[in-house]
Computed example of a mutant assay.
Amino acid sequence: MRAVAVLAPAIVNSGRLVAGRYRLQALLGRGGMGRVWLAEDELLRRKVALKQLVLSGEANQVRASALAEARSLARLDHAGVVKVHDVIEDSGDQWIVMEYLSGRTLAETVAADGPLPIPDVRRMALHLVDALRAVHAAGLVHSDVKPANVQLCDDGRVVLTDFGIATTIDDEQTLPSEVLAGSPAYMSPERARGDAVGPASDLFSLGATLFAAVEGSSPFGAGDPFTTLVAVVEARPAPFTHAGPVRPIIEALLTKNPATRPTPDQTTAALLAL
């Protein structure tokens, strides 16, 4: 799935009925790849999340992007991965219909409450490693693991969301514009350089996400995107002050060389050994 230049989306208002079935209720979030709405499925009488694809280019490119993301998610049946119900088109807009998740994102939680306690970080990490294991087993690389894409649900689920820039494991990244499709402060060094990425790239992003959970900010956030990318490639992480026993695990995940990062199984074993 390739990110391309973003254009201003069509005007969409709360209350709009999409595809004669989904009533928009509130805007949940927005990003470079689209807008996500809370909607009511008036046929099945349930809440869903509706992602409106916001991409420039020909209509077939937008359609292909929506189908690619939906197919990626459809290949996965895991409690830690957001579920997709359908892909629809309405008035020229492409939409992905997904399960509605309660709770807050990790980013929202840290912003509101500060860093998470170590036991909560450990539990969340175990869930995320298990979800990534399933993602990689399906032949996919998420490519955008970050606090804003981790949902901490009210029922205790920890769910990985937004597969808008996911790629297949054997898909080589070659276009410089693709590097900026994700979040510089959480991407791996190899992705920041524009090299091919694999499952180890998601593990680096997981390490950066866990750092943010326990320390309150990204380990490489250096202001502007370019400076941040340079820090990701060349600099050591920011100092640890609250990580305690999870520090060695996070440090291992943040290893610059993807070949020497721990695997999901090794990361799980280290977390269980705490």
Rank of each mutant, 00 (worst) to 15 (best):
D170L: 08
L128F: 07
Q173L: 15
Q151A: 14
D113S: 14
A125F: 08
D144V: 08
S201G: 15
L206M: 11
R123I: 08
S177C: 05
V179E: 01
A243T: 07
D130P: 05
P117D: 14
N149G: 08
D195N: 13
D195G: 05
P119Q: 09
L210C: 12
R122A: 15
P147V: 08
L180R: 11
A112S: 11
V150H: 04
A235V: 06
F226Y: 14
T174H: 12
A235E: 14
M124D: 03
V159D: 11
I165Y: 00
L180V: 12
A185Y: 05
L116H: 03
L203P: 03
T167K: 12
R247D: 02
S217M: 08
P184C: 10
H127M: 08
G223M: 11
R193F: 08
T227Q: 13
C153E: 13
P219Q: 02
D224A: 12
P219M: 04
V141E: 05
D130A: 14
G114L: 06
Q173P: 04
R236M: 14
A125P: 09
D171I: 03
H127I: 01
P239M: 09
T227I: 05
G194S: 09
E178M: 11
V197R: 04
L229T: 06
R191H: 14
D144T: 11
S218W: 09
P117A: 15
P237S: 10
Q173G: 09
G114S: 12
D130R: 15
H127N: 13
T109M: 05
A185H: 06
T209R: 06
S177E: 15
P119M: 11
D144P: 12
L203E: 02
P189E: 09
A196L: 01
A131F: 10
L140K: 06
G194D: 12
V179A: 01
V246S: 08
V110K: 06
D162F: 01
P115Q: 04
L116N: 05
L116A: 12
L160G: 00
V197C: 06
I169F: 05
V214S: 11
S218V: 06
G223K: 10
P147M: 08
V135M: 07
S188C: 08
D120I: 03
P199R: 00
E234A: 12
P176W: 10
P115C: 02
A185I: 05
L180W: 10
H127A: 15
L128R: 02
A111I: 00
A213T: 01
V110R: 05
